[in-house]
Design a protein around this nucleic acid. Structure first.
Length: 211
DNA sequence: TATTCGATGTGCT
DNA sequence: GCACATCGAATAC
């Protein structure tokens, strides 16, 4: 149905921009994952920026290790990490090679392949609960460690431009679920969208920006 | 409705 | 040995 939208794939140059810029511009675009010849896709409605070795919350803070080395690659690949013994989180690596920065995709609005997403999540009934969190969207889209380092300009997983003509207003808050660097205003979500993570910080809006 | 808490495994100290 | 970019069930109110 929305197949035409998904052909509008984002190219490499987009990801080489400043990480905060990419974080904002990703809102309204589509994360697409090809799963057994079916497109599982959702509109990106919530992101967080992790700015590299100067950001205490970023996995690139400190030395290069086997875990964080994909963060340092050239922008336009995926950084997928395992957390809390159970879950994966999906990031978009940004900026040029040598800078360990990325954007965490925190929530999607399900668009395509919703019935498959529900099969990937046994007990979930509401569409919103399929992808309103970074680990939830990985479960619904069947994203795991094998996508770490995946090329986002390829065919298996990529990001496509939005077709919505209406203007999007984004809202800025502090980042969620971290202790270090928790005061930085690096979380962005689409104003009023019902598919974002449920959190008390949703009410503590620091600023608004129109995209 | 709000808050607490257990599950779970890997990387790094 | 401990911290961890989470989730969802259980508990408290």
């Amino acid at each position: 149905m929305l197949k035409n939208n998904f052909q509008n794939k984002i190219g490499r140059d987009f990801y080489l921009q400043d990480t905060l810029t990419v974080s904002k511009k990703l809102l309204g675009k589509y994360l697409v994952r090809k799963f057994r010849n079916i497109y599982l896709a959702g509109k990106i409605v919530e992101t967080e920026a992790y700015l590299g070795d100067t950001d205490p919350a970023c996995h690139a803070f400190g030395r290069i290790t086997p875990r964080n080395q994909t963060l340092y690659e050239e922008g336009g690949i995926a950084y997928v990490y395992f957390i809390y013994g159970n879950y994966y989180c999906f990031n978009v690596v940004t900026e040029k090679k040598g800078i360990g920065a990325a954007v965490l995709i925190r929530a999607l609005e399900p668009v395509s392949g919703i019935s498959i997403m529900k099969l990937n999540r046994n007990k979930i009934k509401n569409d919103a609960d399929l992808t309103n969190g970074p680990a939830k969207l990985c479960l619904s889209l069947n994203i795991d460690k094998k996508f770490n380092g995946a090329d986002l300009t390829g065919k298996e997983i990529f990001i496509a431009g939005g077709v919505n003509k209406e203007k999007t207003t984004a809202v800025v808050t502090k980042r969620i679920g971290i202790v270090k660097g928790a005061d930085l205003p690096y979380r962005f979500f689409i104003k009023g969208n019902p598919y974002i993570t449920k959190h008390k910080l949703n009410k503590e809006i620091l600023s608004e920006i129109s995209l």
